[in-house]
Design a protein around this nucleic acid. Structure first.
Lengths: 253, 253
DNA sequence: CGTATCATTGACGTCGGTCAATTCGTGTGG
DNA sequence: CCACACGAATTGACCGACGTCAATGATACG
């Protein structure tokens, strides 16, 4: 039987009052611009957890704003090895790539049930044609994603397993705290498995587990029961040389 | 004594006849647009090899098009570990980042002597204000860089040393062949040391050396004397699941 | 030539991977 | 309410890819 998805819903086309608008793609827009965006948006869509949103090789017909839930982007090698490229949280914009005529270069997967705002590709190009400022927003988002991706590359390429894991958990802790309500103890909802973490960090799940045990033992993180807490984020930030700037969206100009 | 740099030169503001324009940032521009770009460009600059173009932490006052020579972007950890993020070849656009008010988030280093077109930041913003199409070009470039960066992340996170090295060499071979003249044997000029390769791949120079020996032994690559040749790129592409699409610039729209 | 940088090689150590159980937790059905 | 099933977490024993340390060669340049 098909269970009812657990996600936030809202009345369609309610961009003007969208609860995540302050954090989303089109944050710095005026009232009129928001209406323009609402006009080009085609629908809200809900996708169940543990399913793909799109797959590499498919045509690139839509783009999305993640409205609620957790997802990630990933690449698959021929033999099944998987690299997770980015974890997506509410407010993130997914599905853009340099050549929209070309098949998708990576896949996207819903971890939890997920709610999406859907932008059909032709509408999007229209939209940018009619409103250059939206193009600047998109440039900003892409550049921001790239900075994050460079950070991950550095993490995977040049840090030990323990550093990598601590770094990723800290990043996700900060990002999740920005877009969802922490629980009474300051912990966040955290739906990822150790296998997800492994595939993002270039490790095996087994080694993630061992490393996690160390971090827990040192009191650096509390993780379990779909909940994550970093008791002293400041100290960890310091210790890892974590650059929190990269997570704080600011205006480009 | 300061030796004379070995790079291509040209008369300033000759954007219209720039030999790399077909491959550079502003490729799809009209005559008038090129003149606009030429107007906002401030100068040509030559930088000696083995020096930094800019460093993380500095203010972000200029952006560049690489006109001649090889460079790379990198991040440094506190203890000196280095991750190379991207190798830059003629035609590449450097120095853009999401928040231009904020200090640089990575550094750039000239491998060889290098010639640059310099765009002062304030001019750039002006330029995009006056000509939206340039903004689209920039978005395209950023998205393209990001796709490359995701590819590198996958490479470093999920491939063996041998696969990583072969993959990177193939990529550089293709990219270099696009923008410079191959020698009579089909090899390309290749100024990187094994340490550069190591820092891009998340390996040690020693292990790069050993891995290179294997690849040479199998006839997969010829590398030495600042020259690289991949005798059968097609076969290697096949074997690695290399996606050459990502390297071929196409129009976004 | 003398010096510096890069490439190369060998011996050895370790971080993280592999394989294989066992345990835990949650949801399901009897 | 309990038995069961399934995925995820956990643990141990062992292995191998890659790192570390140290020495030697090859090249280029002043």
């Amino acid at each position: 039987m098909s269970r009812a998805p657990k996600v936030k819903v809202r009345t369609p086309s309610a961009c003007a009052t969208c609860p995540i608008r302050g954090r989303a793609l089109f944050q710095p827009l005026s009232q009129g611009e928001v209406e323009l965006v609402a006009h080009f948006r085609s629908e809200d869509r809900v996708v169940h957890g543990a399913t793909d949103l799109y797959r590499q090789g498919e045509p690139c017909s839509e783009l999305y704003t993640l409205f609620d839930g957790w997802a990630f982007l990933y690449k698959l090698l021929e033999d099944g090895r998987r690299q997770i490229l980015k974890f997506c949280l509410p407010g993130d914009f997914l599905g853009f790539q340099p050549d929209l005529e070309t098949p998708r270069v990576h896949s996207a997967h819903a971890v939890t049930d997920v709610a999406l705002c859907v932008f059909p590709r032709p509408n999007l190009l229209h939209m940018f044609g009619e409103h250059p400022k939206l193009g600047i927003s998109l440039t900003w988002i892409t550049a921001h994603d790239q900075a994050l991706s460079y950070e991950h590359l550095t993490n995977v390429g040049r840090r030990s397993a323990k550093e990598r894991l601590a770094y990723l958990l800290l990043e996700l802790f900060y990002r999740a705290r920005e877009v969802t309500e922490p629980d009474s103890e300051g912990g966040i909802f955290f739906p990822l498995t150790q296998e997800h973490l492994a595939d993002a960090l270039g490790l095996t799940p087994i080694h993630v587990n061992r490393t996690l045990r160390e971090l827990r033992g040192e009191g650096v993180v509390e993780l379990g029961g779909r909940r994550l807490k970093v008791p002293d984020p400041g100290a960890l930030e310091e210790e890892l040389g974590f650059n929190a700037h990269l997570l704080r969206p600011r205006r480009m100009i």
